[in-house]
Amino acid sequence: MAEPIDSALDLLRRLNPKDVKQNVDNIINLNPSLEEELLESVDIPLSVKRCSSTKRDFLCCDYNRDGDSWRSPWSNNFEPPIDEGITPSERIRKMEIKANEAFDVYRELYFEGGISSVYLWDMDDGFAGCVLLKKCTSETAVNGGSWDSIHVFDAQDRARTAHYKLTSTVILSLGTESEALGGLDLSGNMVRQVEQDMAVEDDGSHVANIGKMVEDMELKMRNLLQEVYFGKAKDVVGDLRSIPPLSVTNRDRQTQREMISSMSR
């Protein structure tokens, strides 16, 4: 007999990814004992809270959560306040401040809006952290889209270098609904992972290295979404109903195959 957590994860894979947050909440209501495991295992769209000290918005995930409170990267305080929340050491907190400043610039350059948050925490042989980015085009669920990036990494210190392991998740949701066009819903997520050794001179080098890895990974994942997934959807629509006659399209494809075949010979 399958474990409850395995059954819950299998169920979530079969449901609409656009409703993953609501589905997770429903499963937790049915079986509260699964809350911790589900929140650690399932990527859900990032929620937003306001830092009462700095009046700036920040993103919430399992990595800055302590019970029912979330730590702000801007003030290092929890919202709502708690007595003994877990915070990073002084050295890691200084890096966290620099990383938030750097990714705030990155967010403005690539997203022209949205919200970014970076959280770091101590580990025995280095440190770990996550970079969160969120951009929504509309407040309505039926007309608009959202992009959520969750980049989780760990950095292991070595002599003059560091070994980085990055796991990136992009949650994309696109939807539109009108009387003329009807309804359209494209939602899903993509996960990629990479490991790399990079030179380190000081703590500032860690921020630059992580920034470069996140930038490269987001570019690759965006291109995959555009060229592979949306490109494939375009090909399927083209096969169902092409703009020129299908006979012309098939003739062009045959000519192309013959040219490639003759060149290979």
Results as ranks from 00 to 15, higher is better:
I97F: 04
H163C: 03
P81K: 10
L9T: 02
I28P: 01
C61V: 06
V191M: 08
L186M: 03
G114R: 02
R71K: 04
Q256T: 11
E177Y: 03
N64L: 07
S149R: 02
V191Q: 11
W121E: 05
V214P: 01
I28Y: 00
E179K: 15
D202C: 10
C61S: 15
L15W: 07
Y119M: 02
G231H: 08
R56G: 02
V248R: 08
S33M: 11
R91G: 10
R241S: 10
S7P: 05
F78M: 07
R13D: 09
K49S: 08
L172K: 02
S116N: 04
I97T: 09
P245H: 09
G175T: 00
S261P: 01
D43H: 14
D124F: 13
Q196M: 06
R222H: 04
D235W: 07
G126T: 01
P17W: 04
G145W: 05
M259H: 11
F153D: 00
E215S: 12
L184K: 05
E195A: 15
K94Y: 04
S242Q: 09
S173M: 04
S69R: 04
I97G: 01
S178H: 07
V42N: 07
K98F: 07
L166S: 01
M198H: 10
E218V: 04
D62E: 14
H151N: 15
L246W: 11
F127S: 00
T176V: 07
M190L: 15
D216W: 11
C130I: 15
S7I: 12
R56W: 02
Y164I: 04
V105H: 09
N23M: 10
R50N: 12
V237H: 13
L133V: 13
M198Y: 08
V142F: 13
K220E: 14
A159N: 13
R192W: 04
N143F: 09
M198A: 15
W74L: 12
D83M: 08
T54G: 06
E112P: 02
S138E: 04
Q156G: 06
D197C: 09
R241T: 07
I243G: 06
K135A: 02
E179H: 10
E35I: 10
D6I: 12
P81S: 14
S146N: 04
C61K: 04
L174N: 03
N143R: 12
I243C: 06
V207Q: 00
S33Y: 08
K18C: 08
A8V: 12
N26E: 14
V42M: 11
E108D: 15
T249F: 06
L219N: 13
Q22T: 14
A159S: 13
E84K: 14
G188I: 05
S52M: 11
D68T: 12
S72K: 05
N26G: 08
R265M: 14
I86W: 06
E96S: 06
A233D: 03
S247W: 01
V42R: 08
D202Y: 06
R93M: 13
D83G: 03
P4G: 12
L15S: 05
R222W: 01
K18D: 10
P80D: 08
S247F: 03
G67V: 03
G144Y: 03
D57F: 10
V236L: 14
H151I: 08
E35Y: 07
D6E: 15
E84V: 10
P45R: 09
N23L: 05
S33W: 05
L225H: 12
G85Y: 00
